[in-house]
Simulated scan of single mutants.
Amino acid sequence: MSVTQQYLLDTYRAQRLGTPAPPAPGSGDRLLLRGLRERRAFRRVLAGRAVGGWRRLLPRRAPLTRAARRPPR
């Protein structure tokens, strides 16, 4: 049985019993990843290492792309 089929079965069962429907599969993935990222950053602080990644060292791309797309005067 797939995850979708199990979700539909659980939703049907909850509706028949009058209980709240279960959360949709994958609805908490973003919160889980954010929590893992925050935990990793916290552990880096406790270890005395920098929290920021390599992306913070690179310049922002948006101003550069806007300047490149601007027609010459």
Score class of each variant (00 low, 15 high):
residue 21 A to F: 02
residue 72 P to F: 07
residue 38 E to M: 09
residue 63 P to S: 01
residue 41 A to W: 03
residue 44 R to V: 07
residue 40 R to T: 12
residue 49 R to A: 15
residue 60 R to P: 03
residue 68 A to W: 03
residue 52 G to E: 02
residue 71 P to N: 03
residue 52 G to L: 09
residue 52 G to C: 10
residue 45 V to C: 07
residue 37 R to F: 10
residue 31 L to P: 00
residue 43 R to L: 14
residue 62 A to D: 13
residue 58 L to W: 00
residue 17 L to A: 14
residue 36 L to G: 08
residue 18 G to D: 07
residue 41 A to V: 04
residue 54 W to E: 05
residue 56 R to F: 07
residue 42 F to K: 05
residue 72 P to M: 05
residue 41 A to K: 00
residue 31 L to V: 12
residue 42 F to E: 10
residue 63 P to D: 08
residue 56 R to A: 14
residue 53 G to L: 06
residue 67 A to W: 05
residue 24 A to V: 09
residue 66 R to A: 13
residue 22 P to K: 02
residue 19 T to G: 03
residue 25 P to K: 02
residue 47 A to I: 01
residue 26 G to S: 07
residue 47 A to W: 02
residue 16 R to S: 06
residue 27 S to V: 09
residue 72 P to Q: 11
residue 19 T to R: 12
residue 61 R to P: 03
residue 66 R to I: 00
residue 57 L to E: 14
residue 33 L to V: 10
residue 58 L to V: 15
residue 69 R to H: 12
residue 61 R to S: 14
residue 65 T to Q: 08
residue 44 R to L: 15
residue 24 A to T: 10
residue 69 R to I: 02
residue 17 L to D: 14
residue 52 G to N: 11
residue 53 G to W: 05
residue 66 R to C: 10
residue 42 F to N: 14
residue 35 G to Y: 02
residue 60 R to S: 14
residue 22 P to H: 01
residue 59 P to C: 02
residue 53 G to N: 05
